[in-house]
Computed example of a mutant assay.
Amino acid sequence: MKISFAFFTLLFFLTFCLHAQNQLDDRVYKTYDALVGQDNTGLYNGTEFTDLFLNTDGSYRYFNAFDYTKGSVTYKGQYYVNVLLKYDLLEDNLLTRSEDNLSIFNVKLIPQFVNSFSIYNRHFVRLTDTNLNLSGNGYFEVAVLGNDLELYIKHTKKKKDKALKSGIQYRFSEADFYILKSDGKYNIVSSPRDMRKILPQKEEEIKSYYKTYKKRYKSNPNVFMANLVKYLDGPKMEKNQL
């Protein structure tokens, strides 16, 4: 009789503990969902980001603007839309934060889980098979997806330090370059001259295009390079439209 009583007492205790644990887990998930929103719970899965270089000359380390902007991202195979994003060009990281109670935290998304993202009407992908041994996490802006040629823009920024009486001031400057995919191979491109080396069969076309649109190359090299690749990739009947 004593054994039976002890057994049922132990069983009751274990059942109570299990029920209490389940209730605690439910409260944890409900609290977390309430903080970040159920739709975006999986998005805020990364490490906290802190900007250590805020004392600048007015420049910033991010793509297009200092502040967050609304965008979309495919993360862990799930598509999130209308979320706050910011692209750090200094360390090649995609950042996000919640608009709710966790908005004080900047989250650095885990690069391996980022497939693509869009901000400022620009689309970016993560390329992992370029075989170019580039630094960073592999984020590239998609500039041209043609029939035979593809062009990607690698946006980067460099940091310079300046010693002032009040401390160190930082300055950020753009240092973009391009990746051209031709015949299944990725190539680093920095100028039309590099393009001629990669596509020697189109050397005369490249020279002619550069001569015609030289001013555009100086004022907006990204637009020039994208239009050049479209020109080289497209049918002859379309070339006069660029």
Rank of each mutant, 00 (worst) to 15 (best):
M1N: 07
I3A: 13
F5A: 12
A6D: 08
F8N: 11
F8W: 13
F13W: 09
F16A: 15
L18F: 11
Q23T: 11
Q23H: 07
D25T: 12
D26K: 15
R27C: 07
V28A: 08
T31K: 09
Y32K: 12
D33T: 11
L35P: 00
V36A: 01
G37S: 04
G37H: 07
G42T: 03
L43C: 02
Y44P: 06
F49G: 04
T50W: 06
N55K: 14
N55C: 07
R61I: 05
F66Q: 13
S72V: 07
S72N: 11
S72T: 14
V73Q: 03
T74D: 05
Q78D: 06
Y79C: 11
V83F: 06
L85F: 11
K86E: 02
Y87C: 03
L89K: 10
L90T: 07
L90Q: 10
E91M: 12
N93R: 15
D100F: 13
K108E: 10
Q112D: 11
V114L: 04
N115T: 15
F117I: 05
S118F: 01
I119D: 05
R122W: 03
H123S: 14
H123K: 14
F124W: 07
V125P: 02
L127A: 06
T128M: 06
L132D: 00
N133L: 06
S135P: 02
G136I: 10
G136K: 10
N137S: 10
N137D: 06
F140L: 14
E141W: 07
A143V: 14
A143S: 12
A143H: 03
V144W: 05
V144L: 08
L145S: 12
G146W: 01
L149D: 03
L149W: 09
K158N: 11
K159S: 09
K159V: 15
K160W: 04
K162M: 12
A163K: 11
A163W: 04
L164G: 13
K165M: 13
Y170E: 01
Y170P: 00
R171F: 03
S173Y: 11
E174Y: 09
A175G: 09
A175C: 08
F177W: 07
Y178R: 10
I179S: 04
K181E: 08
S182Y: 14
S182C: 09
G184V: 09
G184Q: 02
Y186G: 02
Y186V: 02
N187V: 03
P192M: 07
P192R: 12
R193Q: 12
R193I: 15
D194I: 10
M195H: 04
I198W: 07
I198M: 03
K202N: 09
E204C: 01
I206P: 01
K207P: 00
K207Y: 00
S208V: 00
Y209A: 01
Y209Q: 01
Y209D: 02
Y210I: 00
Y210F: 13
Y213E: 03
K214W: 00
P221S: 14
L228E: 00
V229G: 02
G234F: 03
M237Q: 12
E238A: 14
N240K: 15
Q241D: 09
